[in-house]
Amino acid sequence: MTSALAPTPAIQRRGLLYRMSRSKSGMAGFVIVLLIIGMTIVAPLVMNHTIAPDPAHAWEGPSGGHLLGTDNSGRDVLKQVLLGGGTVIFVGLGAAAVTTVIAVALGSLAAYLRGWVDSALLQLTDIFMTIPQIVLLAVLGSFFQLTSPILLALLLGSFSWPVLMRSIRAQVLTLKEREFVEAARSLDLGTLRVVFVEIVPNMAGYILINFIIAVTNAIYALVGLYVLGLAPLSGANWGIMIHQAWTYGAIYIASGTPYILAPVFAIALVQLGLVMLTRSLEEVFNPRLAEG
């Protein structure tokens, strides 16, 4: 309880971890995400990248040697799962970063400048909103080799920003009427400084939460592309594993079940961790929720 004389601070400046830990599910999500990201970084360092096929042991069920069994060419499924997170998570983070940067930059400038800039940017947003992403990626995938994860991240990210852009714009429209923005303007601090130093950091929590939601969307979009076979199936990752398992009929073979379920479970776990993490972040950035 704080006394009336000392106003409650907007954000309590106690440790970030302490405040995150106030939500148990959020903390659990945080731990899950950390573990999986840690795994995707550590696994390629300690394990052999190429898993040798062993046709003699194809479609084997779980055993001591192969905890999750083997695939159609006798490769260990567990090893594939451990090694296969890199691309998915990298592209997810990258695409989300691209989306968030575009959405924040365009949304806040549109709201702050209004006038023709606003209408032009809204028009652009509408155009991008009507583009069917999957179809476009299918077309692009047939023309270009989408083997580079960076290219994939750029492509996925540059088509998914319109929704976030609109909500950022709405936020800035209210924030820019605040008196501290007016004060900054009358001090002639310059448009870019007022927008990106005075206004945008006030939405840091909102942006971070939306970034994480964008990661989950990008991961689904990417895995969707792989499952549909629209992205090149070079290398090995969770998306490609699902595609392969499906193509080779893993669902019809009893001992093949772990092969198709393992990557699905891995992806679901990442998504669950991320979604749970946003809950904790909400409490960190919105102290009023944490009081309850």
């Binding site: 907007a10 008196e179 501290f180 007016e182 004060a183 900054a184 009358s186 840091a204």
Partner: peptide, 14 residues
């Protein structure tokens, strides 16, 4: 220069 009425709103909280 302008000084606003409400010092709770005229300073950037962050």
């Amino acid at each position: 220069q302008f000084v606003h009425q409400d010092p709770y709103a005229s300073l950037n909280p962050i």
